[in-house]
């Protein structure tokens, strides 16, 4: 019994320590992104643009493709239910609202956690193992400013963009199904989508995507900085960067969806 309690206590402590580490890293990243530039310590824009291309532009194909499929699947599943009420006209609204409010940001975040979160952890972890992080520190160069801020900026800019891409692709996917299967015209699909969506659907999705981007960067970088024990450690950190960030993304999603639900 005491063994179980000790185990719970130890794990809770470890989890709290992890969160406080994340918090420290986040506050330092926020300082170097939003405060330091006004004190003459400029942001490394070259690096940030490089990261935007890697994390953002290069993810457009996979995000669109997966969202398109999800849109088709949503259309299929929606029609299966709504057919019973003869309400297949509402499939378009269902797809539009689910994509913009929920699935667009979530799918994008999960793809980016897998692609970029793991890449961040692997890059920083490898640098840690090969003493490059120490070398930066010895030179007096701030590691958060050099390594974290460009990634953080890249995702802050790219997550909303990718989420919009995902929203669009998903709605189109739904549209393909509706036009071919439910005998709607493209004009009907467009006007149904326009009627169904309000601005708030899209903005709540984009706000979520910013939070998800923050989680992916901080967890990826933190896992990288805390790598222990060589190449094997890098592998472990890369895996847990993906697992932990997806967990936190879904947790944050619950919290934000609840907030948006009760405040609307």
């Amino acid at each position: 019994m005491t063994g179980v309690l000790a185990l719970i206590g130890r794990n809770t402590l470890a989890f709290l320590r992890y969160l406080s580490g994340l918090y420290d890293l986040t506050s330092e990243a926020v300082y170097w992104t939003f405060v330091a530039p006004f004190k003459g310590r400029e942001i490394k824009w070259d690096n940030a643009f490089h990261q935007m291309v890697l994390a953002g532009v290069n993810s457009i194909p996979i995000v669109s493709l997966i969202s398109l499929f999800i849109g088709v699947v949503l259309g299929l599943q929606g029609a299966y239910q709504l057919e019973k009420f003869g309400a297949t006209y509402y499939v378009t609204a269902l797809v539009g609202v689910s994509m913009t409010r929920e699935l667009g940001p979530l799918i994008t975040a999960i793809i980016i956690a897998g692609r970029s979160g793991s890449a961040f952890a692997a890059e920083i972890g490898t640098m840690k193992v090969s003493e490059e992080i120490d070398a930066l520190e010895v030179m007096g160069l701030n590691i958060v400013r050099y390594l974290v801020v460009p990634k953080y900026l890249a995702l802050l800019v790219m997550m909303p963009c990718l989420t919009l891409v995902s929203d669009l692709a998903g709605i189109l996917g739904g549209g393909i199904f509706e036009i071919y299967q439910l005998d709607q015209t493209f004009a009907m699909f467009l006007s149904a989508t326009r009627d169904a969506l309000v601005m708030r659907d899209i903005t709540t999705g984009l706000i979520k995507s910013l939070v998800f981007g923050l989680i992916i960067t901080e967890v990826g970088c933190y896992e990288g900085f805390t790598v222990r024990g060589g190449a094997e450690g890098v592998g472990k950190s890369t895996t847990s960067a993906v697992v932990v960030s997806i967990f936190l993304i879904i947790f944050a999603d619950v919290v934000f969806t609840a907030i948006f639900y009760y405040t609307s």
């Binding site: 640098m127 090969s130 003493e131 490059e132 120490d134 010895v138 030179m139 007096g140």
Partner: peptide, 19 residues
């Protein structure tokens, strides 16, 4: 310490070049 740091150079065991 940042001011002193620039007077010290270090070669790491793994050379620690930025790859």
């Amino acid at each position: 310490f940042d001011l002193l740091r620039h007077k010290i150079g270090m070669l790491f065991q793994s050379a620690a070049l930025f790859n």
